[in-house]
């Protein structure tokens, strides 16, 4: 692990643990922070496909649903009650892994189709997941899955949000991960440069869906109740808004987008239904005034790893950096 990152990570984790353990923050504020964290995981992972790979996935809520249901089945039905709280981390990882496997399968159509048509495949995928869940009586069908314990706390959310940011960043800024961007820029040139485009797509989908599954697991054990309708198109749209609001191809953008969206939604709560009228208007205005989102294609410098040392001993830093 790079030195510059280690200390801040640990201290943030420690602070969030203290907050959880001693209730240092109002529980409503904690709840909002947890939503922010989960949304950061979702938007960062979606950005991998929609921003860095340049595809347009509309089925991310389907991945989240798979993670949520997998983890709920594990903690409620599989694990012995007494051990369930301790095994929760395993349930989260397992949820991520199961989702990642499904994500890898969904990468297969992306080998052949691109653009609008791939978008529709992901859309269809999301719809199928929801419809299948609605038809599974053993999982509560449309009524939903009840009796999930609240194992998610701020510490876990912060841990996973940082893990998502860190790993996606590590991937994106590696030579291997630059392959994802090369597919976005010019797939033909990428393959001529020796990039195994299938491998790149497979890996991006797998990593992205892993974290969507993790977010689903955290979400399920925060709400203590899940139903298929929570993971419908509206949810996917919400994630798209966070990503494009923050700016595509930017991890910092996804973080900012998730924060602004989540907090604004809470602040505007007193407006009732009019809140949901106002939000889209703001989105449209933002797109017109800043079509690339708040930080489109640029990145906070602290998020960019110094990738290595050149033969001359000079540090090489990635170029797409702005600000501090």
């Amino acid at each position: 692990m790079s030195k510059g990152f280690f200390l801040p990570l640990v201290s943030v984790l420690l602070v969030s643990h203290l907050i959880t353990a001693y209730g240092l923050l109002d529980s409503y504020v904690q709840l909002v922070l947890m939503y922010v964290g989960i949304n950061i995981i979702l938007s960062v992972s979606l950005n991998l496909i929609n921003g860095y790979m340049g595809e347009f996935s509309v089925g991310h809520a389907g991945f989240m649903a798979i993670g949520a249901y997998t983890s709920a089945i594990l903690t409620v039905r599989m694990f012995p009650d007494a051990l369930a709280p301790w095994l929760f981390p395993i349930a989260v990882v397992a949820a991520g892994v199961v989702t990642a496997i499904v994500g890898a399968l969904l990468a297969i159509p992306s080998f052949k189709t691109r653009g609008d048509y791939l978008a529709i495949v992901t859309l269809a995928f999301g719809m199928i997941v929801k419809s299948v869940l609605e038809n599974m009586d053993s999982l509560g069908a449309a009524r939903g899955f009840l009796g999930i314990s609240k194992y998610t706390n701020l510490t876990w959310v912060v841990f996973w949000a940082m893990a998502a940011v860190w790993m996606v960043r590590n991937f994106i800024y590696s030579s291997f991960g630059r392959g994802v961007l090369s597919v976005r820029e010019d797939e033909i040139a990428a393959s001529a440069a020796g990039v195994n485009t299938r491998q790149v797509k497979l890996f991006a989908f797998t990593l992205s869906s892993f974290f969507a599954g993790v977010a689903g697991a955290l979400y399920a054990h925060l709400l203590m109740f899940i139903n298929p309708k929570m993971f419908d198109l509206t949810k996917s749209t919400e994630m798209l808004i966070m990503v494009y609001l923050g700016g595509i191809g930017s991890i910092g953008g996804s973080i900012v987008g998730a924060m602004i969206y989540t907090v604004l939604l809470e602040l505007l709560r007193p407006l009732g239904i009019w809140r949901m009228v106002l939000m889209p208007i703001m989105l449209v205005l933002l797109m017109i005034l800043r079509p690339r989102g708040i930080m489109g294609l640029s990145e906070f410098r602290w998020l960019i790893p110094s990738v290595g040392v050149s033969s001359k001993g000079a540090k090489i830093v990635q170029d797409d950096a702005v600000g501090d």
Binding site: F56, T237, L240, I241, Y244, M276, V277, M279, P280, I281, L283, V284, M287, I288
Partner: peptide
């Protein structure tokens, strides 16, 4: 596309 989604939601 995002704008269209926004208009729809609106």
């Amino acid at each position: 596309i995002i704008t269209a989604l926004g208009v729809g939601m609106f």
